[in-house]
Amino acid sequence: MNFSSGVTEELSAGLFKKVSNYRYKLFVTTLGWQLKTQNDMELDQFDRPDTVYVVAQDENGQVNGCARLLPTNRPYLLGEVFPQLLNGLPPPNTPDVWELSRFAAMDFNNQTSSALGQFSSPLAIQLLQESVTCASEHGAKRLITVSPIGVERLLRRAGFQAHRAGPPMIVDGHPIFACWIETNTSLKI
């Protein structure tokens, strides 16, 4: 497994497009999320030149996981789209807190991998650890994420201390929530 990270121009040639295609295939085609797309790519207003990506690739160079990192002192998904998940608190606005979004760890070339089980695989745990490390290297002391509630199990399995920022909101029958993740402490369970 190979991991790459950086802003768009720091990723190797063509990798950003591969990530956009991967996100389209997973979030739009497989999971049916209603997202902005263009030419089989899933991109939104938070995919900017300063956005940091963490990408997992298999031995053949195929993308099998990705994550998106944004500092909360610039526009980010939770702050702009889902502030109601913060239980009445204002969205964080500091370079010390980064948002983790578009986290995905499904290997389309592995028949045992599935969208439904993507939060439980060793790949997911490794990608999460790489993402938190990457955010820390950019100055994050804490992360916040808006995710399906299944990500809590992944956080526990990966050894991270995390807690809810507020109650889940039901979207299309599925609960999503905001979650704080500590970068400097671990809770081995």
């Binding site: 089980g117 299944g150 990500v151 992944l154 889940p168 609960p175």
Partner: peptide
Amino acid sequence: LISGLDENSPAVT
């Protein structure tokens, strides 16, 4: 609030 069957991640290995 809500309950559901596992979809995103199994609760047991």
